[in-house]
Design a protein around this nucleic acid. Structure first.
Lengths: 348, 348
DNA sequence: GGGCGACATGTTAGCGATAACACTAACGCC
DNA sequence: GGCGTTAGTGTTATCGCTAACATGTCGCCC
């Protein structure tokens, strides 16, 4: 009985390298050579094969290519929350660079509590190439958990201690920028600067916190206890409701722009004018920050460039000869806008 | 030369199903049975195999699994600009649902000008499962270009004309919400409502535009020509600089929150108070919108739910028996905040 | 006690490609 | 003419896995 007549729609198998070979009247290996172009094939043969490929609508099966030991050209990104600007922008940069290099990208999101074996199980094969966006503790944990047989580079919040690790990690040197922002606020006459931190990725003190504290220290100013915030505007809002009860607080540096947004909202509700009574500085320079009311003074961070570089690093390791040199990314830079101003004159 | 150490995987071939079989003293097929759990294996044998797997740190190679005809459980998402809130949030929803179902997700970003064959070439194998985020024309083009052998579902801006297509597309029914927002503004006493549109995905009139125009029509009000905006705050800002020169404009409905942000900025610079002189409504309800100054009246769109549903649909198609029913997503809803208010009394 | 299922397992044949090697024909050189 | 070289092509093995079929081995029933 012809199987064709079955009512069930049969999945017409699409063309394989063998079909192309048959149509072109050559061996499958010759087809492979034409596809990969790394061995010599005569022009007439090549033309026949290309013709057959077009006729059959043949596309190489990447799974089979990879299995058979061909170059893999696919990378998995491990990241935690893509709702966060930094992670999302980094991912964009990675994607862009990967696409430019002809790599395809897989994305796997880490839950705050995802177990290590789970993470490892997501990788599709041994030797898998991975990039980790490790700005928070989930990312850092995942990075540590990766088995030694995976090729990995990472975008991290702070430079690793071990020098051996530095080669395959990239980060934004925002310590300096945090200091710069702090000094800028002091120069406006603020007695001190309060810091509302984003959650840190490790137990160590974050770079931004360090930069802020060092700048205060350098100026001989008291460094208040840094406040621990979250990532969201809401979290900044809640923290600021408490913080701004203290009238001596006139300048707040925030770990990201979302926190700063929440802080400005809280200030408004408490009748504190920004920048008249309170100066606010953010981190990230999200696209919205220039349009806020008031527009936000912030530190521009080149997450996309970092993402591109992270991929570039990985590419370099996977294909040392083919990969272009790893591009630089921009240094963090303070962007002064409307949310900062001279310290208020003490009333009375 | 210590730089070599980190990311490059030690090329020691990792354990295969054969190694496990040897260690456990069974055939490789029995190992396959244990892994997939869909055939009977005695408890003692299973225990031996599991022990061997643990001992060797064996992980199945998904490429080989897929190639050999096993279930594939991986999906590629085609999207254009992940910097846009709608696309990013949809992607998050898809990712979340895919992860919950044990699928892995590939992401491929469409350039505005990416050629059709390019897009098709990105798919890793025939029969690939694909989701398309088709809120803009690049997405719609990609959707149309997909060859018939790929399983595809899509999140689209507006319902397809052909009823046959409806089964595998999902969309947010925002026409009604646009009407609701428009009627709300009219109820505040505004004579009419201007509309600043996001770029539309097709040549047809977008749902939001329809909803807005219909509401004005239903109220017997003149419908001004809709303004064509882009996606960014800057684009809203520029459009509004021109629009707000006309003092009769008292209410603006914007195609997304970013445009609204730009409009509010322009209003401020032009000395127009929001909401006193000008009411502004957005679309999306981005996380920031509640914290803006003034906080933004907007239409909440459940992009994440839509993304989850889009995956659910695909899952249903790929594994009709195993897939759970496709979850509902929330209806668009108008969220009234501070950026809208009574129409200004005509001066003089 | 022989035949028949059910169960548990092994064996073989692919999936669609690449790698390694073998082979053929044309060419140059002495 | 003999012989090595090289370009072009075919043959075979292999990647790690699953599907389909083959092979035992029980226990059960007539």
């Amino acid at each position: 009985m012809p199987a064709d007549e079955a009512p069930v729609a049969r999945r017409r198998r699409s063309a394989s390298i063998w079909d192309v070979a048959r149509v072109a009247g050559v061996s499958h290996q010759t087809v492979s050579r034409v596809i990969n172009g790394r061995a010599r094939v005569s022009d007439t043969t090549r033309a026949k094969v290309l013709h057959a490929i077009a006729e059959l609508g043949y596309r190489p099966n990447r799974l089979a290519q990879a299995l058979a030991g061909g170059p893999v050209r696919s990378v998995t990104v491990l990241t935690s929350d893509t709702a966060l600007y930094g992670a999302a922008a980094t991912l964009r940069g990675m994607e862009e660079a990967a696409r430019a290099a002809g790599f395809s990208l897989g994305v796997s999101v880490l839950e705050p509590d995802s177990a290590v074996p789970d993470v490892v199980a997501r990788l599709s094969r041994p030797g898998e190439a991975v990039m980790v966006i490790a700005y928070d503790s989930a990312g850092v944990r995942a990075l540590r958990a990766l088995p030694p047989d995976v090729a990995v580079t990472a975008a991290v919040e702070r430079p690793p201690e071990a020098t051996g690790d530095r080669g395959w990690q990239v980060w934004l040197d925002d310590r300096d920028a945090a200091g710069q922002a702090t000094r800028y606020l002091l120069s406006l006459g603020h007695r001190t600067v309060h810091y509302l931190a984003i959650p840190s990725s490790t137990s160590a003190v974050a770079q931004r916190t360090r930069g802020w504290a060092d700048a205060l220290d350098g100026a001989g100013r008291p460094a208040p206890e840094p406040l621990q915030g979250g990532w969201t505007p809401r979290s900044g809002y809640l923290a600021a409701r408490a913080l701004l009860a203290d009238p001596s607080v006139t300048a707040v540096l925030c770990g990201n722009d979302d926190l700063a947004l929440g802080v400005m909202r809280a200030a408004r509700e408490l009748g504190r004018h920004v920048p008249g009574d309170l100066s606010v500085v953010g981190f990230d320079d999200t696209p919205a920050s220039a349009y806020l009311n008031p527009s936000l003074t912030t530190v521009r961070l080149d997450f996309e460039g970092l993402g591109r570089a992270c991929f570039g690093l990985l590419h370099k390791h996977l294909e040392p000869d083919a990969a272009p040199p790893v591009a630089e990314w921009a240094e963090p830079a303070l962007i002064v806008r409307e949310s900062t101003g001279p310290a208020p004159r003490p009333s009375g």
